[in-house]
């Protein structure tokens, strides 16, 4: 990393500034913050009503239900990820800056994760309890979500960046990113299921950790490239 030229902020300052701005904006609109969470809870409520309130049945499907609900809640939050920035021109400024787009993108995604993935992770054991999830599976479920939701947010970020300038964003976004979510879903559910049947969940959790570190290092480049195109399209 070379010293910044005169008048240009250093990368760290840029990163921190972006993060602080995004968090401030997110907390400025508490309803937007709460909506994906409310969605998460509502979807989970539908399963006992739609499938069966039988505790044993619920316990069997709890990991899958929780993960799918988390997947959909993440998806729901993605559409707005870059939309406001694009509408008010912030995105254009971000792309046009001389510094690499990598760190601002990481900051943007981190801020988004802190207001979507993190609350989901913290809420999950409570909802798991309501679905009669085995107590020993709660920690693996949380760890899985903590490692998996960043990957979901990053992969979803690619889709959100690619569709940012488009009118028909929503459904297309789901089609683009849901297939990419499959490995995370499988590993996350497996960790919780292994734990609830008394086996060690370490394997899938380690894979999730590997996936998360791979995604954090590589996917922001794809998001940055996609944002450059998205700005042109608009």
């Amino acid at each position: 990393m070379t010293a910044p030229a005169a008048g240009e902020p250093s990368l760290w300052v840029l990163f921190r500034g972006q993060l602080r701005r995004d968090l401030k904006l997110a907390f400025g609109q508490p309803s937007e913050l709460a909506n994906p969470l409310a969605f998460f809870v509502v979807v989970i409520t539908l399963f006992p009503l739609g499938v069966s309130p039988e505790p044993d049945v619920l316990a069997g499907m709890a990991p899958g239900v929780l993960w799918i609900a988390a997947l959909l809640a993440t998806l729901l939050g993605l559409e707005a990820l870059f939309r406001r920035d694009r509408d008010d021109g912030t995105l254009e400024q971000m792309v046009l800056r001389a510094q690499p787009l990598y760190l601002p993108v990481v900051a943007r995604m981190l801020a988004h994760w802190m207001v979507t993935g993190l609350p989901l992770t913290l809420l999950a054991p409570l909802l798991g309890g309501m679905l009669n999830l085995a107590p020993e599976a709660r920690l693996p479920l949380m760890l899985g979500l903590a490692l998996g939701t960043p990957v979901l947010v990053l992969l979803g970020g690619v889709g959100a960046a690619l569709t940012v300038g488009l009118r028909t964003g929503g459904v297309l976004l789901a089609l683009l990113v849901l297939p990419l979510f499959v490995p995370v879903l499988i590993l996350g559910v497996s960790a919780a299921e292994l734990a609830s049947s008394g086996l060690s969940p370490t394997g899938p959790l380690l894979w999730l950790a590997a996936g998360a570190s791979f995604a954090i290092t590589t996917v922001p480049f794809a998001i940055a490239a996609a944002l450059r195109i998205g700005v042109e399209v608009g």
Binding site: L155, V158, L162, T163, G165, L166, T168, L172, L175, L176, L178, P179, L180, V219, A222, A225, A226, I229, G230, E232, V233
Partner: peptide
């Protein structure tokens, strides 16, 4: 599904140059 995503993305973006590059990124991620 991945194929359908690429086809859908290309159809959604009007300018062919931008559509091409967007699909390229999606194909590489895929």
């Amino acid at each position: 599904f991945l194929y359908l995503g690429i086809i859908g993305l290309r159809r959604a973006i009007e300018r062919p140059e931008a559509a091409g590059r967007a699909c390229a990124i999606l194909a590489i991620v895929g």
